[in-house]
Design a protein around this nucleic acid. Structure first.
Lengths: 347, 347
DNA sequence: AGATACCCTGGAAACGTTCCCGGGACCGAT
DNA sequence: ATCGGTCCCGGGAACGTTTCCAGGGTATCT
């Protein structure tokens, strides 16, 4: 920048003014400076800018596993929205370990990110909650619900899993199923809501609650083990609900292993659309949602918080807008993987 | 940091020395400083550190679309390896537009990233090539091959698509197929190599090259359109090769639409394992590779370049190690989606 | 005892910006 | 001609670190 100033024969402050679009700058000055900038191919150093301006135009995204199609679609949606406003995204994988969550959040703090997008590994980790409660930067939770300070201070985008699942289980009950097996992941909001939707459906139809639920990790191995356990029960369910694409993979493995025919022998509903659910034969019914929109909305919430920041007397940035929580819809899509239960099992 | 120094009653330079593990520091001093640090909960500002040290401990990752399972697995592998060495990853999606590639690279330059991981949208975009040729930071290309300066200056991790595809097509030829249709994406290295593998196989078996190839974008729509075109030919192929998971999705749509039975009516090979290929009925043969390793190796190459940097007389960092290119293996996995061609078509 | 060497510490410049503040030039009004 | 105001511009402090340099203290050697 000094080179530019020297070449143009002006002060560095003038160069800065021209480049940052300050109003107090004459056309002649602008021209001179821009000429020098072009001829030197000068590009301002964002690092120094950030240091001085006290904002980095960057946000941290903590994700448990970016290779999960769910998370990567969220990341895409979020990054695109953030980039449109000039923000960059720092990405980190916490490998489903809450301890990594906190250490990454701390790291992002040191990097002075302007905001945080969190898809946490756990909702009830005390360390994480304590850290988040003490943090002043804007936070948006993605499909997570936190207790205490951390929860009230943060914005959130949530999917309305309950309503989609209510329709899904309602559909199964209407087809004549009575015993439904549900495979869930970690005890987090999405699991609770899905279970809630299932209960709602039984209740709404006045059917005796003959469902069974297996909780575990959100991974294929658990999907398979849970399927095994459910189908080996004395009175096995006639329909299965897999609460996530990894669980679906495991469930399908076991179903194929047993030579069961989807629809005819066993009905199946999964959560979240992937290519597999559409192209499988028979196609698999899903509770669907716009995942990319989840990321986009999360970014928008964060941006709105960032726009509403003001410096207080101590020079720190304080958010002036209250955190928001938005609920995004889910939709049940019936497909041939759901059919009436086999005669024998239906009684 | 000044607060820490004041509380401990020492100079800021001493605090800095303690925290950065400088050797010239007495045990007493270390103790005093650490006590002050703990009591204040002080965390150093990485921004200021980066500015002063002239390194940011961050790398930029330019990806065309993170929601693609391929790219997200690469990202996971890379991020994990980078994080282990203290580096953070900035992620950006270029939406398959070379213009965005260059603008993101420029942005990363301004952010002073220490290195660049590139999965470019195009291999021959002049703007991108010019920019990369003029850049001094270490670069690792991911499954891309560049001409000119940019190419020689950059490291790269490449997959050996050719050998896997050679085996795949060899398998099809051995089953009796003669007319094979290949669906490819953009004209980049992976497409060229796959085509090369196909030709190799025909040549090795001395079979007349009766294959046909359709190039296009790496997306489902093209996969479907290409399948349509190939199957509508006067002498349609008896086996199809889809060069990527998006293309596979499109191809399967069309195949199902026509009511064709994989294996019996038409053989199919895809590239890169996804849950669909394993769980589809019949399972789909693939040319497989360890995608996460691709990301990991890319990060390792970059790290090795970063370690080999030294400051020259003008204060700029210069890499002292020559760029490396590593070739990672692929492996053909035969599955029931490949079978002998139907009698009628076999002549 | 004096000199030499070594270890540790404090002061200050620097990294590349931004932005406040003071001042010169110019205009119009008195 | 003087004054008040507006418009631009340059100087310099600051953001939070690191690192060079010089100097003070202690130990070692002659």
């Amino acid at each position: 920048m000094r080179e530019v100033a020297d070449l143009a024969g002006v002060a560095m402050s003038s160069v800065s003014r021209v480049l940052s679009g300050h109003p107090d700058v004459s056309p002649a000055m602008r021209q001179r400076v821009m000429a020098a900038v072009d001829s030197l191919g000068y590009q301002p150093d964002l690092l120094a800018q950030s240091l001085r301006r006290r904002e980095t135009l960057s946000v941290g995204f903590v994700v448990s596993d970016i290779s999960n199609p769910l998370q990567s679609q969220i990341a895409l949606g979020a990054e695109t929205a953030l980039r449109a406003k000039g923000y960059s995204m720092l990405l980190t994988n916490s490998e489903n370990e809450p301890a990594l969550d906190t250490s990454h959040i701390r790291l992002f703090q040191q990097r002075r990110v302007d905001g945080l997008l969190l898809s946490l590994a756990a909702e009830d980790d005390p360390q994480t909650l304590a850290l988040l409660g003490a943090i002043e930067t804007p936070i948006v939770l993605i499909d997570r619900e936190l207790r205490g300070d951390a929860g009230t201070r943060a914005s959130a985008v949530l999917s309305d899993h309950r309503s989609g699942m209510r329709d899904a289980v309602g559909h199964l009950l209407d087809l004549g199923h009575r015993r439904i097996g549900m495979i869930l992941g970690q005890p987090m909001r999405f699991s609770r809501e899905r279970l809630g939707g299932l209960k709602d459906a039984y209740k709404a139809r006045g059917v005796a609650p003959a469902y069974s639920v297996v909780e575990g990790q959100l991974e294929a191995r658990h999907g398979r083990a849970a399927t095994q356990k459910l189908l080996d029960a004395a009175e096995p369910p006639t329909a299965l609900v897999a609460g996530g694409n990894q669980l679906l993979n495991g469930a399908l493995e076991e179903i194929q292993q047993r030579g069961l025919q989807l629809g005819a022998d066993l009905s199946l509903v999964s959560c979240d659309e992937i290519s597999l659910t559409q192209l499988y034969q028979p196609p698999i019914a899903v509770v669907r949602r716009d995942i990319r929109a989840l990321g986009r909305r999360a970014a928008e919430l964060l941006l709105s918080q960032l726009e509403a920041q003001e410096e207080d007397d101590e020079g720190r940035m304080r958010v002036t807008r209250d955190p928001e929580v938005v609920l995004l819809p889910t939709e049940f899509v019936a497909r041939p993987s759901c059919a009436a239960p086999p005669r024998a099992a239906a009684e």
